[in-house]
Amino acid sequence: MKPKVFLEFVEIQSMVASILPFIIGLLYVWYNARAFHLGVSLLLFVVIELMHMAVNANDNIQDFIYAKDEQTFKKITNVVGHYQISVRLAVEIILGLSSIAAILGLVVTKLTWGATSGWFLTLGIIGYVVGYFYAGGPLPISHTPFGEVFSGVTMGYLIMLATVYVNLAPQHALTWTMAGHVFLASGLAVFAISNIMLANNLCDVEEDRLNGRKTIVVLLGQRFMLLIWWLSYGLGYLMLVASVVVGLLPKLTLLALLSFPLVWRNNLRFSAVMIKSKSFVYAIKNSVILTVSFALAMGIGILFNV
């Protein structure tokens, strides 16, 4: 398989969705606990990205296998059919990526075993289960109205929580209170990631209807869910402000609000033409903008202790 085809198969352009909560997690744990372990953090990052690629690849092969549209979707739209990737090769790639991630995940579990034994293992199991059933099983999560919730919470929150945990363990316990604080601080990441999934479903609403998928856009309508797409970014920003107000993030993290005009402009462009080949990129751009602005603003706040 050529590198270009592989990168398209694993949807490399969407990897920013898992990078955002990881970066925020590192900054969060440093600001709140002055904890940072380079080696285990790098291992966790590799695990996260390998699993993200495996889930994306599994999504593509499952869509190809079970699609009802034999002509347009299978032969042109879907990357497996478009590049004539064999099902066997696709499965081998998915198993290879997920197996390496599992092995490295066990290494991280061993290194962090201590004060809250089992936390990382539990998070890893949840990630694996959601990762598989997101596109696999008799009723894939991505074909239901819950795809946005699972993708946003699993990637936006659990990745950040895992990042915080591996930098605290084994010397410090991860409490339920801290888990709640991390959830509030992860709000911008949760909504940015869920909106990538929502943008995908907004663009694919007719295709999803044709293939029998019951996404939330199919059930509630494109117009209504476009409004929710807009509001979700606003809720993410509000959770950012709330995190600063209660002291979970430095005050200068509010500088990230300066990204709002850029996100607003991308939202207008997305709303004008909801065609995947032309508009989906704006959801990705929003995630990049939010990643950079959040990381820079929080980094500045940590640097100047404000």
Rank of each mutant, 00 (worst) to 15 (best):
K4E: 07
F9V: 03
Q13R: 15
S14E: 05
M15A: 14
A17G: 10
S18T: 12
S18R: 08
I19W: 09
F22E: 12
I23Q: 04
I23R: 11
L26G: 10
V29H: 07
A33E: 06
H37Y: 05
G39N: 10
L43T: 01
L44G: 12
F45E: 04
V46W: 01
V47Y: 00
I48E: 05
I48M: 11
I48A: 09
H52Y: 02
V55S: 15
A57I: 01
A57T: 00
A57L: 01
N58C: 07
I61N: 05
Q62K: 15
Q62E: 15
I65W: 15
A67K: 13
T72F: 12
I76K: 11
N78S: 03
V79P: 03
V87S: 04
R88K: 15
V91P: 00
E92H: 02
I93E: 02
L95D: 01
G96K: 01
A102I: 06
A102L: 15
L104Q: 10
V108T: 09
V108Y: 14
F120S: 11
G127I: 13
Y128K: 07
Y128N: 06
V129G: 01
V129F: 13
V129A: 06
G131F: 02
Y132E: 00
F133L: 04
Y134Q: 13
G136A: 06
G136L: 00
P138Q: 12
P138E: 10
L139N: 06
L139V: 14
P140R: 11
I141E: 04
T144Q: 05
F146P: 09
G147I: 03
G147A: 10
G147L: 07
S151I: 00
G152E: 14
V153Y: 15
L158F: 12
Y165Q: 06
Y165A: 13
V166N: 14
L168T: 05
L168C: 04
A169E: 00
T175H: 10
A179H: 06
F183A: 13
S194P: 01
N195F: 02
I196S: 05
M197G: 13
L198A: 13
C203T: 11
D204Q: 06
V205A: 14
E206R: 03
D208N: 06
K214M: 08
T215P: 11
V217W: 05
L219N: 09
L219R: 15
L220S: 00
Q222K: 14
M225N: 11
M225V: 12
L226W: 12
I228D: 03
L231G: 09
S232F: 05
L238I: 03
L238G: 00
L240R: 00
V244P: 03
V245D: 08
V245Q: 07
V246N: 12
G247F: 10
L248R: 14
L248N: 08
L257F: 05
W264V: 09
S271N: 13
I275G: 15
S279E: 03
A283F: 01
S287L: 08
L290Y: 04
T291E: 04
V292D: 05
V292P: 13
A295K: 15
I300T: 04
G301A: 08
I302E: 02
F304H: 02
F304C: 07
N305I: 07
